[in-house]
Design a protein around this nucleic acid. Structure first.
Lengths: 111, 111
DNA sequence: AATATATTCAACCTTTTGGTTGAATGTATT
DNA sequence: AATACATTCAACCAAAAGGTTGAATATATT
């Protein structure tokens, strides 16, 4: 699978506050679906769907024990996301040609 | 505006590969809308909309000069995103460190 | 065996997203 | 003044997202 698609899934999963909250919850320990859902004011089904999105992004792993599904947090996909952000964010800091950019912008504006 | 909503906008903006490509392009210097659109195989209008999403997330700033709109990249919103990711990602790493320290301290006290 | 619990599946609904095309607006150029 | 260029606005469309409710499935408990 293309790396860009993996990144898409990761960032899409993170772009929703409910899913971020679920992840934070799981980052401090395993929990069952119902436990995860409890604090939220939406239906269990809605949470079940959010969990699916997180699973598809490999941010959550599921372990089934009888009727209980234990969910756990996986950090790995965050590495690629953090990497992309850092690369993009630091672009100018890591280059000293800010001056060149300014000049180019000025030049473009003139013509 | 709630911090969570700002983060939503940032991550939503980043979750699309076209928008990430636009950002990368702009991170190496200002460009006009048409210039930004050129490499893509979709309509100018589609790109115009993507730019709007990036602007709403404050990742792109617009400077109008006559009929030209110059777009520039802004890194600031990435800080919050990077922060959230790092906090979440490192959770167990830092916790295990603390636990290890506690155990080591206990051990030292015992002997 | 009957019932309760944990979870998903399925169907549905509304809003948002990501794209299209065609027209409008404002600014340069000739 | 006529025309070309840069950009957005508006209407439309299909697909996806995020939620709901009700039924189905599988496992525990009594």
């Amino acid at each position: 699978m293309a790396a860009t698609q993996t990144l898409d899934r990761t960032l899409t999963a993170l772009a929703d506050p409910t899913r971020r909250a679920i992840l934070k919850r799981l980052s401090s320990g395993e929990a069952r679906v119902t436990e995860v859902a409890r604090p939220f004011s939406m239906s269990l089904n809605a949470i079940s769907k959010h969990i699916l999105v997180l699973e598809r992004a490999k941010l959550v792993k599921r372990r089934k024990v009888g009727r209980d599904h234990f969910l756990s947090y996986r950090a790995e996909p965050l590495d690629a996301a953090a990497k992309w952000i850092d690369e993009t964010r630091d672009f100018w800091a890591s280059r000293l040609d800010t001056l060149e950019q300014l000049l180019r912008a000025e030049d473009a504006a003139r013509k």
